[in-house]
Design a binder for these strands. Structure first.
Ligand code: FES
Ligand code: FES
Lengths: 143, 143
DNA sequence: GAAATAAAAGAGTAAAAACTCTTTTATTTT
DNA sequence: AAAATAAAAGAGTTTTTACTCTTTTATTTC
């Protein structure tokens, strides 16, 4: 569905969003533990996202990664596009070079519906919106 | 969504299904051209599927790949599971080690619905069912 | 200002996915 | 029987994805 890199990215962003609500910056070691990912790998991923402006970072003691108010308004689709590109939202389900009504693959109609549902899922909530259920312990970022 | 290998496999199976309706066995060269795939690669894939019993093959002149009546009754999900395993139908959307109600990830509920829709899409039609729209030129296996 | 902390940057490695090549075996046609 | 055809098998290569390590730079605390 999405790359492993992207899965880590989303989980990390959701975790950072939680902490950012209380204005806490969080280090890469802490993040890696919270989402169960390889520490240097999630570091790389977040540096890339930071360069792209999806989150902020600060060096030195008390430093770490955090989200500003604009950042907290992002949705999961924003992260997916930044990491994997938009093929999940526009590509053909059977791998034709492009998806279009003109020369549709056998599952085109149904696949368009699936894609729309995925898009809705990933656009209907901001990172911020996930905070309460995470805080209440109803939802988890690792297992 | 599914691996490239799996996309080739599905397109090839749909093409072979078409030919098998008229009892024609089709060679790997012909298949590769029809679905626009690397010839030795689709050969490997089909050999694997043949070993698993998803389609039949015959060596020598007039030989090639073909589907028997049982084979024509298969659906796309059968192919996906044979090639990629069942993680598309059972795995967590955010990459948690397993998906379950007990410790659900933040998008669990919505993702379960997506998975169900994908499953429906891939189980509601047999290979045979795709034949007419392909023959009529309403749907395509390459572009 | 020195020591400690934490991200940035960049090079490097490992594993998996995608793809190729060569040889062998089975079948059919002549 | 010989020649031709086509899949089977297996080893090998390339590319991409996943992941690691080391050094540098910025910031803060003492
Ligand atoms: S052409 Fe395949 S999904 Fe649209
Ligand atoms: S736990 Fe993530 S989809 Fe079910």
């Amino acid at each position: 569905m999405v790359s492993k890199t992207c899965e880590y990215a989303i989980r990390a962003m959701l975790f950072i969003a939680q902490k950012s609500k209380s204005d806490i910056k969080v280090g890469v070691k802490h993040i890696a533990k919270a989402i169960d990912s390889p520490e240097p790998f999630i570091a790389k991923i977040l540096q890339e996202l930071s360069r792209k402006g999806l989150l902020q970072s600060a060096k030195g003691p008390t430093g770490g990664f955090f989200l500003d108010n604009a950042g907290l308004k992002q949705n999961l689709a924003d992260i997916v596009v930044a990491v994997d590109g938009d093929k999940l939202f526009t590509g053909c389900g059977l791998g034709l070079k492009s998806c279009s009504e003109k020369k549709p693959c056998p599952i085109h109609d149904e696949f368009v519906a699936v894609r729309r549902q995925i898009k809705t899922m990933m656009k209907s909530a901001t990172l911020d919106d996930y905070n309460t259920s995470l805080e209440l312990g109803e939802k988890y970022l690792k297992r």
